[in-house]
Design a protein around this nucleic acid. Structure first.
Length: 211
DNA sequence: CATAGGATCGCCT
DNA sequence: GGCGATCCTATGT
C-alpha cells in the first residue's frame, strides 16, 4: 500500500521519522524501478530546530520546498557531491522534514550495480544518506516531487513510499544524536536519529512474509 | 559579483 | 583517523 497523505501530515515529525522505519522507499527514474527498506532516519523539526535548513522561518529558493504539504520530496545537494533525500511532513507552511539516512536494497539491484559500479549489492550498500540517493537514482533536481500522487507525466521521474506490512517493535529502534549538526548547539543533542540494526532484519522479513 | 561552507563518502595512511 | 573531491546555496559587498 502506498502511504497516503494522512501518514505524512501528522504534526509530530519525530513520530513520522520512527514510523518510516521498515517502510519501502521506491523510485522510478529513467524508467527503472528500484527500492529499499528504510532502516535509518533523522527528524528535522522546522523553524524551532537550529539543525534545520528552515530554522527561524528561513525561506530561500532551496528551502521553499520544505514549506510544501507533507508527502513532498525535499532533495538538496550536500558537499557539492551528494544528493540528500528528505520527506516533508506536517501541513503546508510548516517546514518539518525527515532525512532518510539508510535503506536495505530490495528491488532492482541490477540497476543499482550500474549506478554505483559496485561488484555486488549487499545489505550495507544503502547505508548513508548519500548512498540512498546513489542507489535509487535520486538527484537534487527531483526536489518537489509528490510522494502521494503520481506526476502528470507517466514517463517522468516518480517516487513513493509503501507500507509492506512490517511493524518495527519499539525495542528494536536505536535512538541517538543526529549526525553532522554540531553547529546547531544544544539542538545537536536532541535524540532525533532512529535506526534498526541489520542483524534484526531476519525477524522483520518474517513479518513481511506473513502478511 | 565574490566567497565561504556544507544533514558525505571513499580512499589513504 | 585524516583529508580531498566538488559545486550549489546563502550571504555579504
Amino acid at each position: 500500500m502506498v502511504l497516503p497523505r494522512s501518514f505524512y501530515i501528522r504534526p509530530n515529525v519525530v513520530q513520522v521519522a520512527i514510523d518510516l522505519l521498515g517502510k519501502k522507499l521506491c523510485t522510478r527514474i529513467g524508467g527503472h524501478i528500484t527500492s529499499g527498506i528504510i532502516c535509518e532516519t533523522e527528524a528535522y523539526a522546522g523553524v524551532t530546530d537550529k539543525a534545520s535548513h528552515a530554522f527561524g522561518g528561513r525561506r530561500t529558493g532551496r528551502t521553499e520546498i520544505m514549506y510544501s504539504v507533507g508527502g513532498t520530496a525535499y532533495v538538496y545537494l550536500c558537499y557539492g557531491i551528494h544528493s540528500l533525500f528528505n520527506v516533508v511532513t506536517n501541513a503546508g507552511e510548516i517546514p518539518h522534514a525527515v532525512l532518510i539516512r539508510g535503506i536495505i536494497p530490495a528491488t532492482g539491484t541490477d540497476i543499482m550495480l550500474d549506478r554505483t559500479g559496485l561488484k555486488s549489492i549487499t545489505e550495507n550498500s544503502g547505508i548513508g544518506p548519500g548512498k540512498v540517493s546513489k542507489i535509487l537514482g535520486i538527484h537534487y533536481s527531483h526536489s518537489g516531487i509528490d510522494l502521494v500522487n503520481k506526476p502528470g507525466d507517466p514517463e517522468g521521474p516518480s517516487m513513493w513510499i509503501e507500507d509492506i506490512g512490517i511493524t518495527v517493535p519499539s525495542g528494536m529502534v536505536e535512538t541517538g544524536k543526529r549526525v553532522g549538526v554540531d553547529y546547531a548547539g544544544t539542538d545537536s543533542e536532541l535524540p532525533y536519529r532512529f535506526r534498526i540494526q541489520i542483524r534484526d532484519l531476519p525477524a522483520l522479513r518474517d513479518q513481511e512474509g506473513l502478511k
